[in-house]
């Protein structure tokens, strides 16, 4: 037997959940096969082009690949919840619910060693699983990245494309362990961990683009701003003389109020004229001098990933520290 084969409690854990592990491995292979098949099919069916060469559409295979990657990115986020729920429920809480912890903990192994083996086994297995699924995702995503909903900064591809997904999974192992120890009821612990990890995903998703200061381009009103390529736009609007910012739609709203859509007998040209006048006077009234656009350049991608991963690993560490404290308080 190879030296990599699990020993002691890791062996017990792997043996206990062998069906779960086989299922997970089968799912990875299925995802891989599906993604590769889509890529091969897509490569063989170029989009339809008009006679003068313009692309009419991308073809069914491309669209299907895009759709699959869009949902695939979301499934990868689900992996975070599933891992946490699995660790909290079947791995930890069930031991207390069914009393089997009394079997393990009266063998030649301390409670701390018992929990450590569980955490390490779960961590190792979920790391391998996550990396494998990220690899599969990259195979599909590399063809369609940058398209709608699939840019580097979009929720889903952002997490699944970088290390932060692994950090989420590791955090869910830590938090799942703690919740499993505290709740000690399989289903309840699973639900609670799923909920907590969902909240973590939402909260970090909402604040992650505030980690680094945004860059801004400004320009005069009247013509469209030209932002750099490959950015994540976070905000755009108008700047005023006093240095303040205004929403882009603020003056359109005011103009629409002043010149109602159904203003009776007015001709279209007259209406347009009146609307533009109202709009311009609104701009003058607020002292608008130009427009701005806030964005993150692609160079912010990895630093943001690393900061978010750091936060998640710190969370995992805290949760595990607390989990070992809880265990020690309960068992001599």
């Amino acid at each position: 037997m190879s030296t990599l084969a699990p020993k002691g409690l890791s062996w017990v854990t792997v043996r206990q959940f062998r069906r779960t592990l086989w299922t997970a491995a089968a799912l990875v292979l299925l995802a891989l096969a599906g993604t590769v098949a889509l890529r091969v099919w897509e490569a063989r069916t170029p989009g339809r082009r008009a006679v003068h060469g313009d692309l009419l559409d991308d073809g069914l295979a491309y669209d299907l690949l895009r759709l699959t990657m869009e949902s695939g990115a979301m499934y990868l986020l689900l992996l975070v919840l599933v891992t946490g729920a699995f660790v909290a429920g079947p791995l930890v809480a069930r031991e207390f619910e069914t009393g089997t912890y009394r079997l393990s903990l009266t063998q030649s192994l301390t409670p701390a060693a018992w929990l450590r083996a569980k955490v390490l086994t779960a961590g190792a297995v979920s790391t391998v699983l996550t990396l494998a699924l990220m690899g599969v995702f990259h195979i599909g995503w590399s063809r369609v990245s940058g398209t709608y909903n699939l840019a580097w900064g979009d929720r889903g591809p952002y997490e699944s494309g970088g290390v932060v997904l692994l950090a989420y999974v590791i955090a869910s192992v830590g938090i799942g362990t703690l919740i499993g120890l505290l709740v000690r009821r399989t289903l309840l612990a699973m639900a609670a961990t799923g909920l907590v990890m969902g909240v973590v995903l939402l909260v970090l998703g909402a604040v992650r683009w505030s980690f680094l200061p945004v860059l801004t381009v400004t320009g005069p009103t009247g013509s469209a701003l030209v932002p750099p390529a490959d950015i994540l736009q976070t905000d755009m609007g108008l700047t005023t003389r006093s240095g303040g910012r205004m929403a882009e739609w603020a003056c359109s709203g005011q103009a629409a109020d002043a010149v109602p859509e159904d203003s009776g007998t007015m001709s279209d040209a007259a209406w347009n004229n009146a609307w533009n006048k109202a709009y311009d006077s609104c701009l003058t009234e607020h002292g608008v001098t130009g427009q701005y656009l806030d964005y993150h350049p692609y160079s912010h991608y990895w630093p943001t990933q690393l900061i978010e991963s750091g936060i998640l690993l710190a969370l995992a560490g805290l949760a595990l520290f607390a989990a070992f404290r809880v265990l020690r308080a309960r068992l001599p």
Partner: peptide
């Protein structure tokens, strides 16, 4: 210590 004792709970816990 743990190494030198064995315990069988009433409900016979097993995996």
């Amino acid at each position: 210590e743990r190494e030198r004792l064995a315990y069988v709970a009433q409900d016979k816990p097993l995996y």
